[in-house]
Structures are given as C-alpha cells and as structure tokens.
Amino acid sequence: MAELLAAVDDSFFTDRTGGGCIQENKLFCPGWVADNYDRYVDPTLQHLVLVGSAVVAGFLIAFALGVFAHRHRFLQTPFLAGTGILYTIPSISFFFLLLPITGRGALTAIIALTAFNLQIIFRNMTNGLRNVPQNVTEAATGIGMTKSQVLWQVELPLAMPEIIAGLRIATVSTVALATLAVFANGGGLGTEIVSGSNITFKTGIIVAGSIAVIMAIVFDGMLLLAGKLLAPWKRVAQ
C-alpha cells in the first residue's frame, strides 16, 4: 500500500507553474488551474463518452425489457430481481468481474455502468406504466386502438415523466460513478484524481471532481427541460 500513499515526487510539479502554492500542495491553487486547464479536456471528453454510452445503452435495454414485461406481466418480478442484482454489485467490482472477458478498457467500464443503470430506468418505467389510469387505456381500446397503439400512443407518453425521472437519476449517478473507470483503464475524469500512483494532489482532485459535479448538473437540467418539452400537457394541467 506504500506505493499508493507515496508522497508526490518533485518531478510531478517541476514543469508546472503556480509558484509556492503547488510546492506546498495547498488546498486549491487557481494559478495552476489557469495554466493547466487544457489537461482536463481529454479526460472530460472521455467521461462524456463513458456516461453517454452507458446511459443510452442502459435506456435502450431497460426500455425493451420494460415493454416486454408490460406485455408479459409475470416477467416483471424476475426482471426487477435480475436488474437489482446488477445494480447491487459495486461498479468497481463489476469492472474486474469482466476482466477475463473484456479485459481492461473503456468498453469494460461502459458495460459495468450500463448494468448499474438498468434497474433505475426499468423500475421507473414499470411504475410509470402501472400508474396510467385504467379508464384512459379502456377509453383508448374503446375507440378501436390496438394493443400496441395503446402502448405507444397512450401509455408510454403518459408514463414519460416517470421514465425521464428515472433517466435523470441514472445519468447523475453514472457521471459520479464513471470517475471509477480509471481503475479499469477506462479513462475519464478519474485519471485526474488518481494520477499515477498518488492521490495527494488536492487541486487536481478538486478540479476533476468539480467538472464531474458540473457535468451531472448540466445533464440533469437538460433532461428536466426535455421532459417538460415532451410533456406539454403537464404544464396545462398544473
């Protein structure tokens, strides 16, 4: 463990400006950030790819499972239990369970983060579909809609606010969790938190952590807005 906690060697800082602040490793060195912001561009982009892929894949799979379980109700319990197991397994452990199959890299991280997402999105979708009032679906059937028309044109739109709510939770959690992808050689902002074998460079940790928090807030806001635009009747009703 000594290697992990070893003090930062001098060469880590010599090529950087920032003066005494860096040498003393103060809590936050704005000068260093101003000189080194470019080193965060690639990790941020990698982080976006990790989160984007995992959330999109998680959404597509959970959506398909949700539609399938809606048609065959008896599947809801096993799907919920199965995705629950995937959700419970810690991501960092999941990365390395995949080690013999996919090795190390971004793909491994994306698979693990996707597996984590499924439960959140599936559960919200199932709840959303269940909360559609029965008289609405009966009316839709009454005017001659087929089962799949009822699902796509009535039930899913009405369940959408809850589906989006699940997507928001999944996205925000994934942005935070994706920092762990560094342990699977998956890149992302975690590379600027655990740089090499040290975690003692405070300014670096704060900058990388803050970028992750801001990214989560921005994604959350975008999804919130998308939900409002996609469900205009909600605004009328309120």
């Binding site: 975690i199 940790i205 704060i206 990388a208 952590g209 989560a216 807030i217």
Partner: peptide, 22 residues
Amino acid sequence: GNAGRAIPELALIALMAAAIGV
C-alpha cells in the same frame, strides 16, 4: 438526495485523504 447522487465517490475519498489525512 439529488445533490448526494452527484458527489463523485472517488473525488470525495481522495480529497478527504489528501486534505485531512488518512
């Protein structure tokens, strides 16, 4: 609850260890 989900676990642990101590 919402803010808690956005905290990156790795950054939290790393900052606690680096700034306050192990």
